Simulated assay, not measured.
Amino acid sequence: MTGASGGIGRATAVELAARGGTVALLARGRVGLEAAARDVEAAGGTPLVIEVDVSDADAVEAAAQRVEDEAGPIETWVNVAFTSVFAPAHDIAPDEFRRVTEVSYLGYVYGTLAALKRMRPRNRGVVVQVGSALAYRGIPLQSAYCGSKHAIQGFTESVRCELLHEKSGVRITMVQMPAVNTPQFSWVLSRLPRQAQPVPPIYQPEVAARGVVWAVDHPQRREWWIGASTAGTIGLNAVVPGVLDRYLARTGFDSQQTADPRPPDQPANLWSPADGPDGRDFGAHGIFDARAHSHSLQAWATRHRRALLVGAGAVGAAVAAAGASARR
């Protein structure tokens, strides 16, 4: 689990720990990692803490080998780690774009390659890429992040085709997320005048974590969407992208900022972890608990779609039978 010290990665690690077994926690911040390890233990799992910057391919490879040496074969690899910059594109420096790309896109590439190196010879294993509706639809103030998510989608599609070509038993799938109440809005480098926020509706990280775990168990599906807003955004972008361009040009700046000014002392995790030696544990949740949904009807319906289809068929058959009986 990369990005395991906070947000979706932290929540997913706990969700997986409830099944028992070892959960390898990969991230940069020691404070957050140690707290995540305690959460994993409390949930019933065995943590393996590894400090690593996923932008370093050699370090990711070494982390993967350590997991195999200390915990056994890697069965599931989940890529979550990212960083970004909240600002208009013209206010983001070239080295900042490069850093976001190295972490948020190449980090996924390096993690995937390290996993495949071990999974392909065994002909089994699952790689899950935690994505976003923004892998399909770019929005203002998040050009670096959206570019990385688009790149991950293209990379994943290519790898999936290659695995299918060789008839591999290894599976790779992507989970596209909605706006989630994670600590990123308190630690991503921001040049916005006001406090950054997720675009409502906002979901709790546990909703996202349940979606990731479902994808781990059902990797045969190429992609999973979490939240009605994700489905709506991707669907509308496929049909009327120009309309969304104009809508987001009008609403995308205000909808991503609260009414409060950005805290002048807000940390930034672009170059070093916000939960560093003198930092604090940010946990899985951000600062929007009061506005975040703990459940997603769309995600629940997706997980239970077969039962719903069977039920709908049974109801339809009963109605048809009743109608035929009435006509007689």
Rank of each mutant, 00 (worst) to 15 (best):
D39K: 02
R66G: 12
P47C: 02
V31Q: 11
V31N: 10
R38A: 15
R30L: 06
R28I: 08
A71Q: 00
L33R: 04
I74E: 05
A35N: 04
D69H: 04
A71T: 00
G44D: 08
G45A: 07
V40G: 00
L33M: 06
S55K: 05
G29F: 11
I50W: 02
G29E: 12
E75P: 13
V54D: 09
E34F: 08
V54H: 07
R66E: 15
T46I: 04
G44R: 12
A36V: 04
D56T: 13
T76P: 15
W77P: 14
L33C: 05
V49K: 05
A64D: 13
P47H: 03
E68M: 00
V40C: 00
G45F: 00
P47I: 02
T46N: 05
D56S: 14
E51P: 03
E61I: 11
E70A: 09
R66V: 12
R30M: 09
A62L: 06
L48G: 05
D58R: 13
E51F: 00
L48K: 12
L48S: 06
P73E: 15
A27R: 09
D58T: 07
Q65N: 03
A35Y: 01
D39S: 10
R38M: 09
G72H: 08
G72R: 12
E41P: 04
A64T: 14
A37F: 00
V31P: 02
A62V: 02
R66A: 15
G44H: 12
D39T: 01
V40N: 00
L48P: 06
W77N: 12
V52M: 12
E51Q: 07
A27I: 08
V40P: 02
G72P: 12
I74C: 05
L33T: 05
T76G: 14
P73A: 15
A63H: 15
G44S: 10
A62Q: 07
Q65Y: 01
G72Q: 11
A71P: 00
A59Y: 01
V40E: 01
E68S: 06
A42F: 09
L48C: 09
E68H: 02
E70N: 05
R30S: 11
V52K: 13
A37N: 02
E41W: 00
E70W: 04
I74P: 10
A71E: 01
E41K: 03
E51M: 01
R66Y: 11
S55E: 07
G45D: 03
D53W: 05
V49F: 07
R66N: 13
E41R: 08
A43N: 07
A43S: 12
R30K: 13
L48D: 08
R38C: 09
L48T: 07
V67F: 12
E68G: 04
D58M: 07
A36D: 03
E61C: 10
T76N: 15
G72C: 12
V49L: 15
L48V: 06
R28P: 07
A35T: 04
D69V: 07
G44A: 10
A37V: 01
A36W: 02
E75S: 14
E51Y: 01
A62K: 04
A27C: 12
A59T: 02
R28N: 13
Q65W: 05
G32S: 08
A36T: 07
A35R: 10
T46D: 06
E41Q: 05
V54M: 13
A64P: 13
A42V: 13
V54A: 06
G45S: 06
D56H: 09
G44W: 10
